[in-house]
Design a protein around this nucleic acid. Sequence first.
DNA 1: AGCGCATTCAAACGATCGTATGAATCATAC
DNA 2: GTATGATTCATACGATCGTTTGAATGCGCT
Lengths: 226, 226
Amino acid sequence: MTDTKTRLLDAAEALFADHGIAATSLRDITTSAKANLAAVNYHFGGKDGLLEAVFDRRLRPVNRERLALLDAFESAAGAECVPLEQILYANLAPPFRTLEEWGESGQRFMRIVARINADPSSRIHEAFLRHFDVIRTRFLAALGRTLPDLDPTEVERRFHYSLAAMLHTFCWGAQIDCLCAHPSDHRERVFTSLIEYAVAGLQAPRHSIDVDEMRRLEVEFEGAPV
Amino acid sequence: MTDTKTRLLDAAEALFADHGIAATSLRDITTSAKANLAAVNYHFGGKDGLLEAVFDRRLRPVNRERLALLDAFESAAGAECVPLEQILYANLAPPFRTLEEWGESGQRFMRIVARINADPSSRIHEAFLRHFDVIRTRFLAALGRTLPDLDPTEVERRFHYSLAAMLHTFCWGAQIDCLCAHPSDHRERVFTSLIEYAVAGLQAPRHSIDVDEMRRLEVEFEGAPV
DNA sequence: AGCGCATTCAAACGATCGTATGAATCATAC
DNA sequence: GTATGATTCATACGATCGTTTGAATGCGCT
């Protein structure tokens, strides 16, 4: 039998991912982990501590690898700026690798990340964001260097769009893919698909669309026969 | 004093958005709405009924407008396919208009939508998805017509990416923008930014990136001096 | 064997939750 | 004015929650 501490972490990870954090009680967790109810408070100081430990365990190596990849690409680029696709690769590859290496457990974990991300009111949310502070600034800086003509506000927006696409995929990928009847290599496909989409989105030309024209079109056809 | 029913809806909307659904008790809601605790069960049959009513009230007109816009653009296009930017405009403009018309309340509501979307385990989630059934199929069909060379699986993925960027913006837009010190017209800018990004992402060329090459580069610089 | 420390255990605590109940209050029509 | 139906009210119920407690247990060390 494995350590009680890791049994608790595993059980919490699975239950948090499947039923949500608020909906999972300590009793659910300790029962699933075949541990005593008080074990959570003994080992982690409470539910919040357990939750923090759950995503500390997996997030720390993922983010370390992200920075290492970015470092590698930057030193490979030398004085040049890092190509967009490499920046996105450095951001996406580590969590995808986690998905493969940890299997079912990794997928569950990524769903927790997406959950916490969408719930800014969680008490854990501050600690959660702190994991991404360095990541954010480093990747924003790299993007800014590669997209010097785009003003930093827009760079940041598009970076967030790309993150959102990734998180959404982690949260919904399973459902989407079961609808589409995928072959076994679907993870590689999705990975490539995400990078292609984000690269194109990040370097989208500005002022390429005319919103006012569509507003005119909209008014023109208002009340047309349904 | 307004109707008790709408007072409850308003209070629930605000509290659900600010503190989360699970973290908001009926007592919080009825206190904020200056109504009796039992009023929720009387008018809505319970907490779930209240939540469903909360997003029914705003989601129904938004989605109706989405379909109306798509209809208008399709009849304007005649036999041609609808331009990508128009499809995205039809999808994005209604919720953005809601954001303006309902003010603070609209922003809160959109945050609830993002929340529910990220929480597939919610009891309400099925009912929530049903709101988007027609939207999804109609917009996927339009996208497929405009992007005939892209296989439907990829169209669906990219559509989801675009939705994710939009939802993420609704959930985090306030925080992101307060970081960037925006002028008053920032909503229009974000709206345009989202469409530009998504249009570019949706028509990204396939096989435009070489993942294997980056893997080689990664291995080459593995363990380089940190 | 016996000590010391880490861990596990059963049981309980106080708080809060969603829901139900039956009486009180209001509005409206006759 | 009073009967009727809709609404509001104070209150209570049973369940579940996170946390705490103090005793019991396991276990390496001298």
